[in-house]
């Protein structure tokens, strides 16, 4: 077990280093931030040089990367070129809204996907199942940003029930969570259906049924509990898609999260903020995946024998 954990930890570290390299070098291709900082004005050559030196952009790329990594290990993500605030503070400020949105989306997804997936599997081939499957397929076929716009059109513009943007009340959370959650519920329902189908084939289900246990007790207590394991793993793995989705949904609803921070920073060529934001999101995702993997291997020892 210890060996397995070490292996996974090492692997995670490797992934984080690879990601940091990709982001660091890609960002450097974006364009010269110094010219952008001066905007429309004609800066003097001295002023440009001074800023370049101050930002450390005059050093060689490997040197810049080394400094960047050294700071990263100490949780120092640099200072925003724009606002001069530490990047980590900016991200932490925006972390709560993104977390809220992600959780809201997850709750919506679970509430929809569990019943749909279970009923679909139990009534396999019946019209309920076909409906459920079409619902899931429509769910995964919806562009999430468009779903957001449609929900705004219906519930904000026409019915005037819910706000289209803002972050000050619970009602402002509803539409963004629905947008994110509905999309995810499509994928999740498909997975629950197929893992339920796998479990329902098992002999212990037949045994339980033959003992005269009520159908729904068998379904919930025996089948669903076993089908839950792959589902939970999957939800962990889906965390990245959730974050990626959040970035877009935040744009639609002017949600003050990390996604908007990153996209705004891209337009302003604010290197450290983009870099820091993407790395933080990536690390969170990689760590969640690691935790899911490890917890899964504790619950189900068969996993450990596989290739780590």
């Amino acid at each position: 077990m210890a060996k397995y954990i070490m292996k996974r930890l090492l692997h995670t570290l490797l992934v984080i280093i690879a990601i940091s390299m990709i982001i660091f070098f890609a960002i450097r291709l974006t364009g010269d931030p110094v010219t952008v900082m001066f905007g429309a004005g004609e800066p003097t050559k001295e002023a440009v040089e001074q800023i370049t030196e101050k930002l450390g952009l005059d050093k060689s790329l490997p040197e810049q990367y080394f400094i960047f990594m050294k700071d990263l290990v100490q949780f120092d993500l640099g200072v925003s070129y724009r606002s001069n605030q530490p990047v980590l503070d900016l991200i932490l400020e925006r972390a709560w809204p993104t977390f809220l949105l992600a959780m809201g989306g997850m709750v919506v997804a679970v509430l929809i996907a569990f019943p749909v997936g279970i009923i679909s599997a139990v009534k396999k081939g019946k019209s309920v199942d076909i409906f459920g499957r079409i619902f899931s397929l429509i769910g995964i076929s919806f562009p999430n940003f468009w779903l957001g716009i449609m929900l705004i059109l219906i519930f904000s513009v026409s019915l005037k029930w819910l706000p289209a943007s803002g972050f000050d009340s619970f009602s402002a959370l509803i539409l963004p969570s629905l947008t994110l959650g509905l999309i995810l519920s499509g994928i999740l329902a498909r997975l629950i259906r197929s893992s339920m189908l796998d479990v329902l084939k098992m002999q212990y289900i037949t045994t339980a049924k033959s003992k005269g246990i009520k159908d729904w007790v068998v379904i919930i207590k025996h089948a669903f509990r076993n089908a839950l394991l792959p589902t939970v793993t999957f939800m962990g793995l889906q965390f990245g898609a959730l974050l990626g989705g959040a970035v877009i949904v935040e744009q639609v609803f002017a949600w003050p999260g990390i996604g908007r921070l990153i996209v705004d920073a891209i337009n302003q060529r604010d290197y450290p903020v983009v870099q820091g934001g993407v790395i933080v999101l990536a690390i969170v995702m990689v760590v969640v995946n690691l935790l899911v993997d490890l917890s899964y291997s504790i619950i189900n020892p068969r996993i450990r024998t596989g290739r780590g």
């Binding site: 992934v15 990601i19 990709i22 982001i23 890609a26 960002i27 990245g240 898609a241 974050l243 990626g244 989705g245 970035v247 877009i248 990153i262 996209v263 891209i266 983009v274 993407v278 999101l281 990536a282 995702m285 990689v286 995946n289």
Partner: peptide
């Protein structure tokens, strides 16, 4: 391990 959307944005 790297979410595509983030990668593509960068």
């Amino acid at each position: 391990a790297f979410p595509f959307m983030l990668f593509a944005i960068v």
